[in-house]
Structures are given as structure tokens and as C-alpha cells.
Design a protein around this nucleic acid. Structure first.
Lengths: 222, 222
DNA sequence: ATATTGAATTTTGTATTCAAAATACAAAAT
DNA sequence: ATTTTGTATTTTGAATACAAAATTCAATAT
């Protein structure tokens, strides 16, 4: 019998990919900035080869952009592009919410309800970083409960893009906590009571509000 | 003044990527098969470096799979995974249909109506390869009319996966032409009459039928 | 002062190299 | 006849090498 010990040996690419992704996420690498290959590779104690492989991955996720013969740059998104991204999140997370409602376990319900527990009933939410983290967790958790491989990969990327977007002081939140908390709790209720159609609908409405907000930030309408 | 001549010099990666993608699409490389790097690179007259870069791209698109320390393999999809892919296509192409209805031009309407023109009224469609090509074009065209950068990239990939799936004799079609032609024409009507909501709804229903068909092919239900 | 030129330097794209791991296969053992 | 072992061969992952392109920056011209 063949044992599978050490069968999935992780290669450097993946590790480097993770690290660079985090550097973009936590704004060690800033949007628009050129990525210094040699320097970064030296810092990480590796050669350019695995770094380039990682950057190619990130290019595909649109977190990084290549300008031929000039190098890799951290992607800078326009509001217009963000609208496109939120339109996709709208339908994809709508799907995730529906799927989650269809297959959530009781234990997962408890976890999901816990995410915003400390903000519930609070009439003026001031802890923006904390709320932002809860927001991110809310979306991640629903995606995970839906447990669809492809969906998860795709949404992880969009989540990062969304939170890295523009408004740094507001920690990436498009709308104010006071406005969104109600939506979040309603969505959680729909999912936990296994109302799939409703969960999808509410999630989509939730995103449409963010899209409207983004659209209002545009000079000319679309 | 600085001229921009040759500014966007294409690098090998992209060309190789295109070529390998086509090899998967036209089944020169078969699902499950290991990709012989040295051999392929030699055939194309390049080194392994750009080939690996291209394969990493394809890995991200899920057309190719890496098993660490054993190489790249053409991805083989299970019916269960295909269901996941079609669920995503359902909502994404629903979005594309809605967007298309919102911004289609008269010229594009003519083009769109042309896609299935030769099959309209035909009571028994026998030209499967031709219909399969029309089907692909239908989806591609709607996506292009919607003109959303991200959406286009993502759907291109799923389209290829879908058409490369299992049933080779049927050219990738999940359902029979006789069943789908009606759907297609209705969707085209909705888009051309600028009924965005309806277009999205119809497109989603269209996909749900394919999903049901796939589900019925499963041993155990989901 | 500003713009232009043209080395010197850095960085990129790709090939080459090399150790470590995987695979193939022949010989020996069960 | 099948399984196991040991060795040769191939392939991978990653570093290094290097020519071509881009950038920098000081010197010169406008």
C-alpha cells in the first residue's frame, strides 16, 4: 500500500505569492507603486524566479499589472473599475448567500450570528477598524459556508481589491456602519432560517447600495 | 516629444499562453495528461521559462493543475465541479445579459440576431458542430456587448472549460439544440428590446436547466 | 533656466545551469 | 510470476547568467 506522506510538498511560488499578496493587502506595497524585483527577492532571501512566478499569479488576479519591459506595478483601480468589481461581487456573493442558506449547519449559524454580535443594538458605531474586520469576516464566512471551490478563490481576490480600494481612512468601507449593520443582520437571519431565495435577494440589494454609492462618486454617469 | 513606438512590446509569455490554451481547447492536449515541459518547449523553439510562466497562468484559470514536484497536468473536471462552474456562469452571464440589454446598440442587435438565424424555424437541428459554435458565439457576443473588462476575462475561461467538458461527441453541449434554441431566441429578444431584468432572468433560467441536467447525471444528489 | 544628448547603471526577459526529487527499469528476492 | 530493491535516467524547482531595453544623471547645447 502506498502511503501519501509528504505528497503535497509546497513549492516556493505559493509561499512567495502569499507573502506578496499580504504586502499588498496591508499596504506595505502601495497602489501604483513599482515592485522592485531584485530588492524584494533579496529581502525574502530568494532569487527572482519564484518572485516573478508569484507576480504572474497576482497579475491574473488583477492585483498587479505588468507593463512590458518596465516591470510589475501594484494595481490602481478607478472608481469605474470598482463599480465593475462590485457588480460581479453582487451576483457572486448573492450566489454564495443562496448556497449558504441551503447548506448551513447549526454550528455555523452560531458562528455567523457572532460576527456582528458586539455591534448589535449599538446606535453609533465608532470602532471603524473593528467593524471593517467584522465586515470582511462576514463575507468570508458566508463564502466558506457555501463551500464552492471556484467561488471561494474568486471572491477572496475581490475582497482584497475591495478593501484595498481608495478610502483608506474608512478602512475600505464604502458605506457607513450605521447604514450597513441592518443589512448584515437581515442577511444573516435569512441564511440561518434557510431562506435561500431571500438570502440571495438581500445580499444583492446590499451590494446594489454600495454600487449606487460608488456611482454617485463619479463625475459623469455611466 | 517622446514617441511611443514599440512601447507595448509583447513578451513571450503571452504568446505561449495563447498557444497552450488553444492546444487544450482543441484537445491536442487531453484532460488528465501530463504536460511534457522540455518537449513542448523544444517544439515551440523556446526555453522552459516562458512555458512555465504560461502554465502558471493557466493554472490560475483552472485549465491546468500543478502537482508539486511532479509537474503540470491538463485539468480533468468532475461533474460535481462542472455544476459549480455552471452555477457561477449562471449568475455571471445573467449579469452580462442585463448589462447587454442596458447598453446594446442597434448594430449589435442585428449581429446578435444573426447568430442563430440559420437554425430558426428548423425543426430538427442536425449540425451539432455548427450549433455548438453558434452557442459559443452567442455567449461570447453578449459578454462583449456588456463590455465589462473583468467579466469578459472570467467568462472566457469558463466558456472554454464548459466546452471542453466530458461529452466530446456532443461538442460540449449539455442539452440538445432543439431544447435550447427557444431559450436562446427569447434571451436575444429580451436583450434587443432592452428589457434588462427579463434578460437576466431568462439567462439564469437557461443555465439552471443545464445545471439540472448535470445534477441528474450524478449518482448521489448534492 | 530648460531641454537634449549620451554614456553609466539598473532592470527586464529569457536562457542556462544544477541539485534534489521523481520515474523507469533491470536484477534479485520472495 | 510477482514483488522488491537498487541504480540510471529524466524532470522539476530554483539560482544564476547575460543580452537587450529602460532609466538615471551629468555634461552640453539652446
Amino acid at each position: 500500500m502506498k502511503k501519501n506522506i509528504g505528497a503535497n510538498y509546497e513549492n516556493l511560488d505559493q509561499k512567495v505569492y502569499q507573502v506578496v499578496k499580504e504586502m499588498i493587502e496591508d499596504r506595505t506595497l502601495l497602489p501604483g507603486q513599482k515592485i522592485p524585483q531584485e530588492k524584494l527577492a533579496k529581502e525574502m532571501g530568494i532569487s527572482r524566479t519564484p518572485l516573478i512566478a508569484a507576480l504572474k499569479f497576482l497579475e491574473h488576479e488583477k492585483l498587479v499589472e505588468v507593463k512590458p519591459r518596465r516591470g510589475f506595478f501594484v494595481r490602481l483601480f478607478t472608481t469605474r473599475e470598482m463599480i465593475g468589481i462590485f457588480e460581479i461581487r453582487e451576483v457572486l456573493e448573492g450566489l454564495a448567500a443562496r448556497r449558504a442558506a441551503e447548506c448551513i449547519t447549526d454550528a455555523e449559524c452560531v458562528a455567523l450570528r457572532g460576527v456582528f454580535a458586539e455591534y448589535e443594538g449599538q446606535d453609533n458605531i465608532t470602532d471603524i477598524p473593528g467593524y471593517s474586520r467584522a465586515d470582511k469576516q462576514f463575507h468570508t464566512l458566508i463564502t466558506r459556508i457555501a463551500s464552492r471551490e471556484f467561488l471561494t478563490t474568486m471572491l477572496q481576490t475581490f475582497n482584497i481589491i475591495s478593501l484595498a480600494y481608495q478610502n483608506v481612512p474608512r478602512e475600505g468601507l464604502i458605506q457607513e456602519p450605521g447604514t450597513t449593520i441592518r443589512d448584515h443582520l437581515d442577511i444573516i437571519d435569512a441564511i440561518c432560517s434557510r431562506r435561500a431565495e431571500k438570502a440571495e435577494l438581500l445580499m444583492r440589494e446590499h451590494f446594489r447600495k454600495a454600487i449606487d454609492e460608488l456611482k454617485s462618486q463619479l463625475e459623469e454617469p455611466m
